[in-house]
Design a protein around this nucleic acid. Structure first.
Lengths: 215, 215
DNA sequence: ACCTGAACACCGTTCAAGT
DNA sequence: ACCTGAACACCGTTCAAGT
């Protein structure tokens, strides 16, 4: 029974199924699996999308929408930095294997632009130099992306025999906090370092060259 | 002429060719291409490696070796942090599309363990708490990995029409430094922020809870 | 021990045929 | 307009056959 009166497929349904599939299998989906999940033959998909690459693009677009945070332009800049890093990391952390899709995303940042505009506004008002704004925003990105990839690493990073010969390292591991997963607490720690560094930069009168830089 | 007196293939030759291929094509290699580059039929490869997955594992191992830095245990901790972040990012930056391989690497950190031991030693001697060492080391990782992925983003991130409506953002872009590529200067900036944050943490007497954390 | 050619299942994609 | 089945080129992998 080809061509039912009401279409079985839609772009949204395809993207939904692809994301669900990616979540279940851990990052890969085949057109065959995608078709099966939608109870359709593979060739039917091509009536709605140009190919697998377009499905990936659509997923990417969906993720960028998820990452757009509502930033209150009157909030404290520390809160804004912390919350935007958090929102971005959480969106990636929910599907860490898709981080790679985002990293290679060309320009696609239209959806996120309004939140970025707000971040830039808040930072600017807080007293940061125009010349630093892009770097600060990118630094937040870097930490969010790096932290979500870090999430793919196993909880125990070092084999036992390595630790036997590494006094400082094994001491570090023995004393590491256990209330949160390693990747989670490291993310919070890194963001706090970032904010603390920014505070110091503001306090130092916003120097053109970063004080710690030339060493 | 099958079976020449001297073998045409070796594991090292296969890994070398696979890396070269990955560099040229931008991250993907097929067994067919790999065989062709080695002037051999695809099936020959299976006399030396179990399959494509093992080649990927071998590449990963090679990269971890490259990332192991010689750390002078007597150096200043700031220098150590900066140099180890740099070494790790550069190794990834040379082949950014392989960063994903590293991110998912299970445990493989034997090769890097001695440099990490040295970093932990230096940080510990500088006065950082045992409970913070793993988080500091992971924060360095996060920035290095995030920065190398950032390298895959295009130089111009925001489409023109977006900028028209974003006053602060477009002002940020106009004033952004142009002496270095965006990804490069953002990496240096982020590492400097990290170090600056760590300095402040030391100066504050190494508080158990990070000062900036609860907000 | 190691290279080869033929074969397999699977992949993404195309397209004429149906309604 | 939209689903289908048959077909294509390509992929990773296996294996008996060669030396």
């Amino acid at each position: 029974m080809p061509r039912p009166s009401t279409p079985k497929l839609s772009i949204d349904a395809i993207v939904d199924a692809a994301i669900t599939l990616a979540e279940q299998t851990g990052g890969l989906f085949t057109m065959a699996d995608l078709a099966a999940a939608l109870e359709v033959r593979p060739s039917s998909l091509y009536n709605h999308v140009a190919g697998r690459a377009e499905v990936v693009d659509l997923i990417r677009h969906r993720m960028h929408e998820e990452m757009a945070v509502r930033i209150d332009p009157r909030a404290d800049w520390r809160t804004v930095v912390r919350e935007s890093a958090r929102a971005q990391r959480d969106a990636l952390a929910r599907r860490p294997w898709l981080t790679m899709l985002l990293a290679t995303s060309p320009a696609e940042l239209g959806a996120a632009a309004s939140s970025i505009e707000n971040i830039a506004f808040v930072l600017s008002r807080a007293g940061f130099r125009d010349a630093d704004l892009l770097q600060i925003i990118t630094a937040i990105d870097i930490v969010a992306i790096g932290a979500s990839l870090d999430l793919l690493s196993p909880e125990r990073l070092y084999p036992r025999d390595v630790l036997a010969e590494s006094a400082s390292l094994s001491r570090a591991l023995r004393h590491a906090p256990r209330d949160l997963p390693r990747a989670e607490s490291a993310f919070v720690f890194a963001v706090d370092l970032l904010i603390s560094g920014l505070e110091q930069r503001l306090a130092a009168g916003n120097p053109p060259a970063f004080p710690a830089s030339p060493a």
